[in-house]
Design a protein around this nucleic acid. Structure first.
Lengths: 340, 340
DNA sequence: CTGAAAGCGCTTACAG
DNA sequence: CTGAAAGCGCTTACAG
C-alpha cells in the first residue's frame, strides 16, 4: 500500500487540492462543495487510507492539536495515573498528548518546556519542580496557555488545579489525635515544594489547635533523591525521642513505604506502638500489614479539570485571566492509624 | 523575548540561511565554513534563544527524531515504569518519545499506529493487544522499524524483547510444589495473549513434570476488563474444589491484588490455608500481609534493550532482519508462598 | 463551487 | 566558503 498524499487524491479525482483539503477538514459544506464531490473525495480517501501529515498540517496552520504534559516522573504511580486520565480526556477533546518527565530536575524541566513549545504544542500542563519561576512567568507573559497541577507557584497567579494539601494533612493528623496519639512524628521532604509545605502547615495547625506542643525534633526532612538511605536515621531518631513517638505521618506514598519497611525491620509494632498514616497512596495500601490509613488524592479530577481548563483556554472559550481550582482529598481510615 | 527564526539570524548576521542552518546542525566544518562565521552564528543563536521548529525541520527532512511507544495502559505500574525507562534511554540516544495507551482496544491500537506514523515517528515500540496482526504485518512489509515488547505475535518473526513467561511461571509453580503444595489453582486472563498463554503452559508443565494431575477446574480465566467482578466467583470455586486448593498462582499483579483482597474477605488464612504467588509485582508487595512471593520482570532491561534495538534499526547500524531477545524474570520468595 | 499561488520554517542539492 | 531556489505536504486567503 503506497502512501497517498493530498495531491494524489486531487489528481486522481481531477479536483483541486483546495477542494480536497477543505472537504477532508469538514469544511465542505461551508464552502458549498457539492455533496457528490464531497462523497467522492471522502470515499477515495478512506479507500486509500489517506492520513494527513501532521507535521505539514501543523506547520501550515501553526497548530499541532497537541498538548504537552510535563511531570516529575512517569514511573510514579500518582503521575502515571494522571497521565492516563489526561490522555483520555485530551483525546476526547481532540488533542494528542506529549509526555515528558523532568525527574525533578529544574534545568531539564526548562528544556522540556522549550522542546515542547518547539514542537508547537498548543498548551502545557505542568507539575513543576517549582524552580522555574522564570520560565513559567515567561509563558504567562507570552499569554501561552498552561495549567499547573499538583504543584503551583505561590508567588504567582496562574491557572492551576491543586489539592488542598493543608486540609488533607490537618484532617489526618486530627484523626490521629482523636485516637489518643500525642507524640506525632512527621516525615517529609526538603520543603522546596509549596505542596509539601502546605502539608507541613496542616500537620502543625492540627497540633496547635489541639493544644499539643509543636516540636521541631519530630519533623524529619528527607531528600527526594536520597530518602531511601535517610529513612533509617529519621525513624531511629523518632523512636529515640523521649519514650518514642506514638505515631508518624508520612507526606507521600513512597515515604510511607520505606518508612513502614524500616519500622518492620526494627520490629516496631504498627499500629500498637507506632501508628502511621500516609498522604497519597499506592494500589496495594489496603492489603499492606497493617492496611494503611491514607489521604487519597482525586487524580482523575485533577487530570480532567486541568485538561478542560487548558482546552478552554486554548480555544478561547474561557478568557478569564486565571482560574485556580483547589480539590479536596479524601481520608480513608484503615488499621494503621490504630482504629479498632 | 520575540521568537527568532532562521531567517532572522541570517538577516541579522548578513549570512545566508543555508550557512546558518548548516552550522546549527553541526555541519559547519564539513562544509568548510570559517570558524569565525560559525562562532558568530552559534553565539547569536544562543543569545537569542533560537530553537528550530521541529515541525518544519521534520517536514523538510522527512524525519522527526521521535519514536512512538504504544502500550495498553500508562496507568499500569508495569507499563509506566517501562515508559519511564524508555524515555530516559531514548533521550540519551537523541530521540523524543510519543506515548499512547491503547487501553487493550485493538481498533484504538491500530489508530494509534496510524496516528504515530502520521506524526512521522521514525520507529515504534509496541506492547500490542495482539489483535492487530494485519497492521503489524504491514509495518513489517513496509520495512518500518519497530520492536514488540512484552507481547509478541507467535505467528510472526519480528524484532522483539520479551520475558520468558513460560519459565517464570514454571519456576514459581515448582517452588510451590517444593513446599508441598499439590492443589494449585491458577487465576489468569482470557488467553488471547501469547504472554499469558506461555504463563499457563509454564504452570502446566511444572505440574506435569512433578507428576501432579493437571486439572482444568483449577484454571480460572477472567476478563481483563471485568476481573474485579469475576474474582469472587473464581476464588469461591477454587475454595470449593474438593477440600479446597492449597495455593493459587496469579498471572498479573492486579489479579494478585484483587485475589488477595477476596481471600481476606473470606477470611482464608494466607499462606497457611492457601499460599499465593504472583507473576509481576507492585511496589508494596513486600509490605503486604503476607509479603507476596513474586516473579519480577526486568522492566529496565526491557526498556533499554527495546530502545537500543529500535534505534539501531532506525539508524541502520543493524540490518539483521529480526532480533528477538528473551529476558529472564526473577523469583523473589516471600512469605505468601508458605516458606518458613 | 474551483484553481493558482503563497506561505508555514526548515533543509539540501546545486551552481558558482 | 556562499546564495538562490526548490521542496517537504499541507492550509488558506483570493480571484474568478
Amino acid at each position: 500500500m503506497k502512501k497517498v498524499f493530498l495531491k494524489d487524491i486531487a489528481r486522481s479525482l481531477s479536483i483541486s487540492k483546495t477542494a480536497v483539503s477543505l472537504v477532508l477538514n469538514g469544511k465542505g459544506d461551508e464552502n458549498k462543495i457539492s455533496k457528490d464531490t464531497q462523497d467522492k473525495i471522502i470515499s477515495f480517501a478512506k479507500k486509500h487510507n489517506y492520513v494527513p501529515n501532521q507535521l505539514a498540517r501543523g506547520l501550515s496552520r501553526g497548530k499541532s492539536e497537541t498538548i504537552g504534559l510535563i511531570i516529575p516522573n512517569i514511573s510514579d504511580t500518582f503521575y502515571s495515573k494522571i497521565a492516563g486520565y489526561v490522555e483520555l480526556k485530551a483525546k476526547e477533546l481532540g488533542y494528542s498528548v506529549l509526555f515528558s518527565s523532568s525527574n525533578e530536575d529544574n534545568k531539564k524541566e526548562a528544556e522540556l518546556i522549550r522542546a515542547m513549545l518547539n514542537r508547537q504544542v498548543e498548551g502545557l500542563i505542568i507539575a513543576s519542580t517549582q524552580n522555574n519561576l522564570k520560565e513559567i512567568k515567561s509563558l504567562q507573559d507570552d499569554d501561552f496557555p498552561f495549567v499547573l497541577i499538583d504543584r503551583n507557584y505561590p508567588e504567582m497567579e496562574t491557572n492551576a488545579v491543586v489539592v488542598d494539601n493543608f486540609n488533607g494533612l490537618k484532617i489526618v493528623t486530627e484523626h490521629l489525635i482523636g485516637l489518643g496519639r500525642r507524640k506525632i512524628g512527621f516525615i517529609t521532604l526538603e520543603p522546596k515544594l509549596e505542596a509539601i509545605h502546605q502539608r507541613y502547615l496542616g500537620y502543625k495547625s492540627a497540633l496547635i489547635e489541639a493544644g499539643i506542643n509543636f516540636n521541631k525534633d519530630l519533623v524529619k526532612e528527607l531528600s527526594p533523591l536520597n530518602y531511601e538511605d535517610e529513612i533509617s536515621k529519621a525513624i531511629g531518631d523518632l523512636l529515640k525521642f523521649p519514650n518514642s513517638v506514638d505515631s508518624v505521618v508520612f507526606v507521600t506514598h513512597y515515604l510511607t513505604s520505606v518508612g513502614l519497611r524500616e519500622l518492620k525491620r526494627r520490629q516496631v509494632k504498627v499500629p500498637q506502638e507506632v501508628a502511621i498514616v500516609s498522604f497519597d497512596e499506592l494500589t496495594a495500601f489496603d492489603l499492606v500489614d497493617p492496611p494503611i490509613t491514607s489521604v487519597i488524592q482525586p487524580v482523575r479530577d485533577i487530570a480532567n479539570l486541568s485538561v478542560e481548563m487548558l482546552v478552554n483556554r486554548i480555544e478561547g472559550k474561557d478568557k478569564t485571566m486565571v482560574q485556580k481550582t483547589v480539590l479536596d482529598s479524601k481520608l480513608v481510615v484503615r488499621k494503621s492509624c490504630g482504629t479498632f
